[in-house]
Nucleic acid binder design. Structure first.
Lengths: 135, 135
DNA sequence: CTGCATCCTCGTCGATACTG
DNA sequence: CAGTATCGACGAGGATGCAG
């Protein structure tokens, strides 16, 4: 969370401390390992648990469950249980979740576009470090 | 990082695994506690170390140093040392750093706009949980 | 198939003390 | 003023086993 005294240059009321906290919480969600990927996948189409699991190579059952719970809790994802046998659970984005796709894709787009710039910057940095150590 | 087999629905070449990794790394940066705030503050004007420190209530000296180092390493922030006494170090956004402001503000704007929606969703969720437990 | 509980590891962050 | 070094606490996340 942003500490309550600090400010974020958001368009809206910069004096509102609550807003900073809210923003920090959401940014935290963006930062955690799987949330954005899950949102992006559900943005394509609604899917079942193991359908997601198979697409997200490397995710543990536990983390997929936790991630989906959190997204459900935040109102970004809708969980639908079908009382069939075997049980079937569908996950879909809510309208709120869909509204997140746009800013998220903005960020993802930026990342994809400037990824090489960053990689190059890192190389230059390492180089400079090596020079400093050698010199 | 995104596992190398998973895909992100970015406009550009979805088959490129490297892109996923790069995107995940950048998303991680967004998620860490202080980076976005530092970028936002430097977006207003370039600032000195303790100038930033004072504005970011709650940050430790260590974390501000680490955060700035990482942003410098990634080419988002430029560090300028003035050989005066006492020493003076200025931090400023690079053009790359400034280019990040737009997507970042997009996300921050979304968060600010939908923060109450999320808060409400959480209340409803807790409520439903309580009902389930009681019923 | 979907999901919870447990254990354990590892990285991140804060506190503190010290340096140029 | 602007760092670096070290230590400890904490929590995210993976592995595994069990349940509805």
């Amino acid at each position: 969370m942003f500490p309550s005294h600090s400010r974020l240059p958001v368009p809206a009321d910069p004096a509102d401390h609550t807003e900073c906290i809210v923003v920090r919480e959401i940014l935290d969600r963006v930062g955690d390992k799987w949330s954005v990927l899950v949102i992006a996948l559900l943005g394509q189409r609604s899917q079942r648990f193991n359908e997601l699991r198979r697409q997200i190579d490397g995710i543990s059952q536990r983390m997929l469950t936790l991630t989906l719970r959190q997204l459900e809790r935040d109102g970004l994802v809708l969980r639908t249980v079908h009382a069939t046998v075997p049980p079937r659970v569908d996950y879909a984005l809510t309208p709120l979740g869909e509204s997140a796709l746009e800013p998220l894709n903005g960020l993802i787009g930026w990342a994809a576009e400037h990824g090489t710039d960053i990689a190059e910057a890192r190389l230059r940095y390492e180089e400079a470090q090596a020079d400093a150590a050698a010199g």
